[in-house]
Design a protein around this nucleic acid. Structure first.
Lengths: 205, 205
DNA sequence: TTGCTTGTTGAACGATCGTACAACAACGGG
DNA sequence: CCCGTTGTTGTACGATCGTTCAACAAGCAA
């Protein structure tokens, strides 16, 4: 039964980018499971199946890894919503509706993703770089929303308040959908959001 | 200048309830400052100006103190909103509006309180007792809201969706008001919330 | 095969964590 | 005045934290 000719390697080398990605994904899973209060280098390394030192080698420290995870998760959310808009076709109202209700469907409605996001929120107070990342993320989301509202013919004077309100409603529904999953369904969240949009944009067009 | 007759005491004894309250308030301040990830027995004790052992003596552990802080902060929020409703008088629509917009005025709009609340959210995933406390708090808020909606003549069939939507909008506005304080003002949040209410409840009555 | 690059490991370090507990002292009742 | 109650202190302990770094080895080039 010996296998001397192929002494299976103790570990596999990986491309730096690939290894960084696997660490980022492991960090996101740990954040979702134990929250920002319980995240640690050792927990992340174990989740990724590597040693503790590798985090320092690729990211310099756990803070940079958490920050990179924020960027990565935000990118996935943005990509998913952009895909939803593209799939909606060219009808402006449909593009807006699918952008807004996209937050209540996979992969964004995933409880693990929401828990990860809450962990980032909890770090805004304590860490300046996370606060900056949040500001950029929030501004980007609102800017995309305002563009979609403009395409629906909403006058510029009303876009700002509309975008703030829609974002708040979506965030609140998304949040509660994660914290108390049994309270209401994604379909109900969609209906509520669609009803709010109907009060802002005229039904036709 | 000697004062031998009054050798100033090294510490003051306090009523258990009073000491517990001061520890709870110190815990809330620490949660607001450093978030759930940075809270510790030593930080809380230093904030309250007492020794580390006192936390264990009065609460048994830091987890119970955090849980008690959640109860206390939730009680203060509920009290402030109930006061707003009482001050609004007997007009049903005014009571509803002041209940909803009360979240954008002191003491609830206080950034420290919001940061504390986010810290609780971040613990929902990791701690079952915090999750239960959240469910109770959320159910209580929605029940009060549904009562106010009923007083405004909203048919029962529409109350559930309306309450979920209003709660989500308020939570989202409250959240962003804390995370990016410079983005929009409490007055704007009030206007947006009032506009949403107007689409749910007929203007008269 | 040999040698080099470098991704990877795991032990070691000091700091900080939560908790336990024995000693101390403030304060009220005798 | 003294004494008992008990709120309070501060040290001690083991566990875990983030980081560092010398040694190892996987994979590629020659």
């Amino acid at each position: 039964m010996s296998n001397a000719s192929a002494p299976s390697p103790a570990f596999r080398r990986a491309e730096p980018d690939a290894r960084r990605l696997s660490l980022i994904e492991a960090c996101a899973r740990v954040l979702a499971r134990v929250g920002a209060a319980g995240v640690s280098v050792r927990a992340i390394a174990q989740e990724a199946g590597v040693s503790v030192g590798l985090v320092g080698h690729h990211f310099g420290g756990v803070d940079a890894l958490v920050s990179a995870t924020y960027d990565h998760v935000d990118g996935k959310v943005t990509e998913a919503l952009d895909d939803a808009v593209t799939r909606a076709g060219t009808h402006a109202r449909a593009r807006l509706e699918d952008f807004v209700t996209g937050s209540f469907a996979p992969p964004i409605a995933d409880p693990a993703l929401l828990a990860t996001w809450i962990a980032f929120w909890s770090l805004v107070t304590a860490r300046q770089d996370i606060a900056r990342q949040h500001d950029e993320q929030y501004a980007g989301y609102r800017a995309r929303l305002e563009t979609l509202l403009a395409d629906c013919g909403l006058p510029e004077a009303r876009r700002r308040h509309a975008a703030i309100g829609i974002t708040a409603l979506v965030d609140g529904l998304w949040l509660e959908l994660c914290l108390s999953p049994g309270c209401f369904s994604p379909e109900e969240a969609r209906d509520i959001a669609r009803g709010f949009l109907a009060t802002i944009i005229s039904k036709d067009r």
